[in-house]
Design a protein around this nucleic acid. Structure first.
Length: 941
RNA sequence: GCUUGUGUGGCGGAAUUGGUAGACGCACAGCACUCAAAAUGCUGCGGUUUAUAACCAUGAGAGUUCGAUUCUCUCCACAAGCACCA
């Protein structure tokens, strides 16, 4: 057959020796910057997942080069950080050496794939020539007041002995080792990322990120619009300020909650009479890990503050104040107004502490109409514990299945009304009231009376004690029209259609809060309004006019904790002098090199290993010359990856971090591919970093990336993540050895939708290998002909493959080429033009074998140097085409139509088909729908 | 709980300004070649039935339409991300 190993080696050497894929910094060609996230060179080696995204972007890069563009497609290494350090500790080698070793393996593996990276621009974030500039940029942050050191309760991993950012410890679990994260107070360098919240949000409009990535970023930034409302305190001359997004529910406030760390507790110790209990609670909270604090969501705890009371700003009612750990000091003002009727958490708290619930929003069902008559009513649900069934009234065709309902007289309570209705309509007398739910505002139209009603309805639940019954007392119109039926929950959910009744039932099953929209009640000037946003606005305005509130926007995005107490990171280039404070290392002294030592394991007290190295720590103050100490924290491994895409434009520059002319030529990254796991952290850090550089005039674009695309994962054969423990890891090296790179590449493109996860199948891979073999054998069938026999098909395929590669639809691009091959094989022989076009279109995906076929069969210029095939729209049209004939939307036949045919001709041909005739015979033709080139649909009666 | 997705043959997946559902591939079955196997080639391949045809079928149910995998509503399941964010 053919020796794919020899072919692959031959072409990889050719590309490298002739610098085929090196980008030009100055060129008349249009530039295009394609970037794939650089890997973390772990000891595990390359994963088949890497192959997928590298091949995908490689295919696009190769096509764009053939389209005449100057393509920058670089690769490098993100090698600082804990995994490399841990690998080094485990294997007793220096991280520096471990990294070099891993890079070597990775690079060899990637080069075996034949990816068209421009290797002349390769660097690692751990190169001193690179991290010199990372430190240089950190100093820029420092100079502009964007970096500060603060004592903070930080997320601390007791196992890794290091501080973690919120991003690295989400869910209270350490990103790296999986241990529970605890809170620890520590001095940390911070970058003022929260100042950029709005810019980071707005900047998304200047990008073409996939929607799911934009959404992830928007959620992470977490903008919320609301107001700060002031509640005066009764005992002291001060007020408690809360942040709320639901000012409209202010009349429903029945208590307030402040975070355990809230400063008022210390400030007003004298007024607080149960200080002991409060301090004890505060201690308990501190001991809880973040994990415990967030996982035990349902169980609310807290302590009432005795001696400190708030005053409702509008009703002047006294409002008790509690401390509870469900309120966080880090968000808003660290204190909330609690509205138990309309907030799940407040409701749970109020249940536990027996606090009053005041509903201010009434759920609306039905459709409001004009000129409604008002009524008050009840819906009573009777439950029989013994049979686990509910009593319903079945009106049959007259009204379906309902519960007991009735109109309430003005003098009657809801409870009395419900009891009366149950006895009258069912006869059951021995019943017990269980609970009632929040009122529902129901609207309906009675056709028989021609009246529209607005009903305030209360739902009540009763329990049947025993079957004691008296005779029903029915109205004339009720007699004989309904039957009483005890049915189970499932029947009710399926059969009760009336909106009021089924909503009542659902609310009885899940009693508690109502968090939806509705009609305002018990709210003075808001009563009757139904538009939530209008209510919020009205309330804030009302408060603002009286100096009780101000509008406020909050973000969840916090400042970036930039310190790590680890060895293997960029040293933070600052010096602490007792006289001058924090002094930057002078630019000319950069980089601050990591010392060459043998001890680099983290210390038990949480200090950086660098702190133990006297020769590193002790230095002179650059400002006053006195003895001083170096900062020993290092940067997080997100630092190096926050600007690597800029360095690729000018990787060898030792005068500047990147030359401005080059920055301007290359501009934004046009297409950036990476995993969904980086859609929030890395992508947000890099955008923040770049926006900062832009704001101080160091880069020409505010947004660094244009298109951002996330690939799907490759899972194991059974659909699970590949992992050593499951033993389902596929090593790309093994596949390449057995089937060749081109087969692996083609299969990974064919495996499925690029953005979705896909399961590995070695049989699927074999199918792709077979496809390549068949193309190879096509060389034996070359005839003397020129041009294309199936011209329309070839041009359609060119169009399809070109567009599919642009739109990341690699799987259908491969399938289009398979269809073309099937057609060629049916012909039994192909012209050189036909074969050349097929392999040309396949070249971006399977570059080695196609280049070899092209050379061996003398089909023309080397593919990597020739222009991408162009399609001719006029030649895509066939002489005749097939149309479907339907009768009443069902396919009854097909017709072959010449491309010039008119509608009448199509209709005539359609009606001639015997099967169609059979279906329209003796029937009236209502109309005929003709969609040229697609369908004829004859509608009959 | 919230957000975002996704639900199509035995499997991976095609098809959306609404217009032949299942392209392409895998697996499977039969045949050819072979002493035999592998490789290769050819044929078949959603289901049911009274089978040149009809009916059913794109998670379930309703709706709009001449026509719905595609649009609307309700519900269910799964996945990922976020998670006491006031």
């Amino acid at each position: 057959m053919y020796n794919f190993k020899k072919i692959e080696k031959k072409w990889q050497d050719y590309w490298s020796e002739n610098k085929i894929f090196e980008a030009q910094d100055k060129s008349n060609k249009e530039k295009y910057y394609i970037l794939v996230e650089f890997p973390y060179p772990s000891g595990a080696g390359l994963h088949v997942g890497h192959v997928r995204s590298y091949t995908a972007l490689d295919a696009y890069a190769r096509m764009e080069r053939m389209n005449g563009k100057n393509v920058l497609f670089p690769m490098g290494w993100d090698a600082f950080g804990a995994p490399a350090e841990q690998y080094a500790i485990k294997n007793h080698i220096h991280p520096k050496d471990a990294v070099l070793e891993n890079i070597k393996t990775f690079k060899k593996q990637i080069q075996d794939l034949g990816i068209s990276f421009d290797w002349s621009r390769e660097f690692s974030t751990t190169d001193p020539e690179y991290y010199k500039w990372t430190q240089w940029q950190f100093l820029k942050f420092f100079e502009h007041g964007m970096a500060y050191k603060a004592k903070k309760n930080i997320n601390w991993c007791p196992n890794c002995k290091t501080g973690l950012s919120n991003e690295d410890s989400s869910g209270g679990i350490c990103e790296r080792c999986g241990s529970s994260v605890i809170q620890k107070e520590k001095e940390q360098w911070m970058l003022k990322m929260s100042e950029y919240s709005e810019q980071l949000l707005e900047g998304l409009d200047d990008t073409e990120f996939q929607d799911r990535i934009k959404t992830a970023q928007i959620n992470w930034i977490g903008k919320s619009t609301g107001a700060e409302v002031t509640f005066p305190l009764k005992e002291v001359d001060n007020a408690l300020t809360v942040y709320t997004t639901r000012a409209d529910t202010l009349f429903g406030v029945t208590f307030m909650v402040i975070a355990p760390e809230h400063p008022y507790i210390d400030l007003y110790q004298k007024q607080i009479s149960n200080m002991d209990a409060i301090l004890q609670y505060r201690e308990q909270t501190k001991k809880k890990t973040e994990f415990e604090r967030t996982q035990l969501v349902k169980d609310k705890t807290g302590v009432k503050i005795e001696g400190l009371t708030a005053i409702h700003p509008l009703t002047q009612r006294e409002i008790p104040i509690y401390i509870s750990d469900y309120v966080m000091m880090g968000y808003g003002t660290g204190s909330i107004m609690a509205v138990p009727a309309h907030d799940e958490r407040d409701y749970a708290f109020s249940k536990k502490f027996g606090i009053e619930v005041i509903p201010v929003i009434e759920q609306i069902t039905g459709t409001p109409r004009e000129n409604e008559q008002k009524k008050s009513s009840i819906v009573a649900v009777l439950y029989d514990e013994k049979t686990d069934k509910y009593l319903t009234i079945n009106w049959g065709e007259k009204g379906g299945r309902l519960f007991i309902g009735g109109t309430r007289n003005e003098k009657e309570t809801h409870l009395a009304c419900a009891k009366r209705e149950i006895i009258e309509e069912t006869g059951y007398t021995n019943i017990e009231f269980v609970t009632e739910i929040l009122p529902i505002n129901h609207h309906y139209y009675a056709y028989n009376k021609n009246v529209a009603y607005e009903i305030d309805s209360i739902g009540l639940l009763f329990k049947l004690i025993d079957d004691t019954k008296i005779e029903q007392q029915l109205d004339e119109d009720e007699k004989g029209n309904f039957t009483l039926e005890w049915v189970d929950k499932k029947t009710i959910l399926n059969e009760v259609k009336d909106e009021l009744h089924i909503t009542t039932f659902n609310n009885i099953l899940n009693p508690g809060v109502y968090t939806g929209d509705g009609k305002m009640i018990h709210s003075e000037f808001l009563n009757g309004l139904t538009d939530k946003h209008e209510c919020i606005d009205k309330m804030i305005q009302y408060l603002e006019e009286r100096g009780l509130a101000k509008r406020k926007v909050n973000y969840r995005l916090q400042d970036w904790i930039f310190s790590r107490q680890r060895f293997w990171g960029e040293p933070i280039p600052l010096i602490h002098c007792d006289t001058c404070g924090w002094v930057p290392v002078p630019y000319e002294d950069l980089p601050v090199l990591l010392p060459d030592v043998t001890e680099y394991e983290p210390t038990d007290d949480g200090e950086s290993p660098l702190a133990k190295i006297a020769s590193f720590v002790n230095c002179k103050c650059p400002k006053c010359g006195k003895d001083a100490k170096r900062e020993t924290d290092t940067m997080p491994n997100w630092a190096g990856s926050s600007w690597y895409f800029l360095r690729y434009m000018d990787p060898k520059n030792d005068k500047e971090f990147v030359n401005m002319d080059k920055l301007k030529y290359w501009g934004k990254v046009d297409w950036y591919n990476g995993g969904m796991e980086h859609a929030t952290r890395h992508l947000l850090y890099a955008r923040f970093w770049n926006q900062f550089l832009y704001n101080i005039g160091l880069v020409p674009n505010k947004e660094p990336f244009n298109i951002r695309v996330a690939h799907g994962m490759i899972l194991g054969d059974g659909g699970e993540k590949m992992s050593k423990s499951k033993g389902n890891v596929i090593n790309p090296d093994d596949i390449i050895k057995e089937f060749g790179t081109d087969a692996l590449r083609t299969y990974e493109m064919f495996i499925g939708d690029y953005e979705k996860d896909a399961s590995w199948s070695t049989n699927g891979l074999k199918g792709c290998k077979k496809f390549l073999d068949r193309i190879w054998r096509l060389q034996n069938c070359i005839n003397d002909g020129k041009g294309y026999t199936k011209e329309a098909l070839v041009h359609r395929t060119i169009k399809k493959v070109t567009e599919d590669l642009q739109n990341m639809k690699y799987n259908t691009a491969v399938s289009a080429l398979m269809i073309l091959l099937n057609e060629y094989e049916k012909q039994k022989s192909v012209s050189k033009d036909e074969l050349r076009t097929l392999i040309h279109l396949l070249n971006p995906i399977a570059p080695h074998i196609t280049e070899e076929i092209n050379e061996q069969s003398h089909l023309g210029e080397m593919l990597c140097k020739s222009n991408w095939p162009q399609y001719d729209k006029d030649k895509m049209v066939e002489d005749t085409y097939q149309m479907v004939v339907q009768v009443n939307g069902k396919v009854r036949g097909k017709i072959i139509v010449e491309s010039g045919a008119n509608r009448e001709k199509m209709e005539m041909l359609a009606k001639e088909i015997p099967n169609v005739r059979a279906h329209i015979e003796n029937k009236e033709i209502v109309k005929v729908i003709v969609i040229p080139s697609k369908i004829v649909n004859i509608v009959v009666k």
